[in-house]
Amino acid sequence: MRHPAFVTEGLTRVYGEGHAAVHALRGVDLTIPEGELVVLLGPSGSGKSTLLNIIGGLDRATEGSARFRGQELTTMSDAALTRYRRDHVGFVFQFYNLMPSLTARENVELVTEIAANPMDPGEALALVGLGERADHFPAQLSGGEQQRVAIARAVAKQPDVLFCDEPTGALDSKTGRAVLGVLSDVNAELGSTVLMVTHAAATAAMAHRVIHFADGRIREVVENATRLPAEEIEW
């Protein structure tokens, strides 16, 4: 097995207190190797997005430890977490979250500007097949196009890890397959570790590793002996 990118031990996240407390994660132990494409599956509220947020440096654990390349994330200061996100992490969200007042290219530049080793924004957009539409505003793009801009934005910094929360959740099957293809290419060509949260069980077929969540715990981890290319995934 390759070096682990992430190792978590007893990772717990509780929102609220007392009667209103919600246990989003109930002690998760997990190891994710560098360079893998990992799919996190499970019903709503099973804890997969919470895990993604914590190891992505967006949220803090209540208990337990989470390490990236041996570095403890749970005790990092806000400034250190910002640094971590800036230097190592890319995000793709279900609702694209593009800046409506910036063009596709400018949305990508938003990230390349502060990254240590970015690729050319045009190149990133070309990678997702949107080189032609770089100067369009989000409102002028379809949902799939917007999501591809979001991916271009996430990969343009050549991140070590790419976190995708329901990247195809708002897309039709054809567009969704294309987006998955891009993610798979990023994993293969840039060597980024890709963690993808999804509802769509079929997506699991393209992953190196599939982690099933239920009730804030890991129910099962499956390593795929053979992987399907994205375009052959049944929707």
């Binding site: 967006l58 971590y84 800036r86 230097d87 990230v111």
Partner: peptide, 8 residues
């Protein structure tokens, strides 16, 4: 989002 990207 900006913060998620690593803007301080």
């Amino acid at each position: 989002l900006l913060k998620a990207f690593g803007y301080t």
